[in-house]
């Protein structure tokens, strides 16, 4: 069965990007999900401290801050007027909707990634495209040759994708979909650079087998 026409793909992919925001409350970014899953140990610690912070009541936190200030600077630091005491000054430490980000455990991101596999599997099965294959595609094999070259190219290609997306701070979804649709300059630049890099190398690879 043929792939979707471009307009149907645009509608559906746009729907996913918007749906992610409406459902999750954050912007879609798959390389961010990868980072959370790979950094699961740090994330677990973050989750613990977030839970502790939630449980501790405000007085407890204030006392802890006070004790830490005394330990660090001595009692003299406490004699100075603190900003909060001046009624005319605005309170600075009141969390607003934009500064507090709800904590999402890494396991949710793992489920997100695994569900993508499930979705891809269902799509392949229902459209008759599922086929166990020991090559990525005919074109890929034509470019890279034998089995060893294929597997090595995928390993190093994957490493470049993993390292590159983390370094750039986003990928096709984070920079491309979420960033470009909000006209964030860094995302626009990133998307232009990775598309041009991919096009340039693909043209070279095509020329090498022609």
């Amino acid at each position: 069965m043929a792939y979707w026409p471009w307009w149907l793909g645009a509608l559906a992919l746009g729907g996913v990007s918007i749906g992610y925001f409406l459902l999750i409350g954050k912007l879609l970014g798959v390389s961010g999900s990868w980072a959370k899953v790979v950094g699961w140990k740090e994330d677990r610690e973050l989750g613990r401290s977030a839970a502790e912070l939630e449980q501790a009541d405000e007085g407890e936190i204030e006392n802890a801050l006070l004790a830490a200030t005394l330990a660090e600077f001595g009692a003299s630091a406490m004699d100075e007027k603190t900003p909060g005491q001046d009624a005319s000054e605005p309170e600075e430490d009141v969390p607003t909707a934009s500064t507090t980000v709800s904590y999402t455990p890494w396991t949710a991101h793992l489920i997100f990634l695994l569900a993508m596999f499930g979705g891809g599997l269902i799509a392949a099965l229902t459209s008759g495209q599922f086929e166990l294959e020991f090559q990525l595609s005919d074109t890929h094999s034509r470019i890279f040759g034998g089995p060893l070259e294929i597997w090595l190219s995928l390993l190093f290609g994957g490493m470049m994708v993993g390292f590159g997306t983390q370094m750039a701070g986003g990928c096709t979804s984070g920079h491309g979909l979420s960033g470009c649709s909000r006209l964030i300059p860094a995302s626009l630049l990133s998307t232009v650079v990775f598309m041009l890099s991919a096009i340039g190398l693909s043209l070279l690879m095509e020329a090498s087998i022609a």
Partner: peptide, 26 residues
């Protein structure tokens, strides 16, 4: 980073989400 990602994508045909779709297709 974006350059590295672009080159890698051209080679392995996968961005961080598409690899799962490739696996799903067998």
């Amino acid at each position: 980073g974006s350059m590295l990602f672009g080159f890698g994508w051209a080679v392995c045909g996968a961005c961080p989400s598409m690899v799962f779709v490739q696996l799903g297709a067998g």
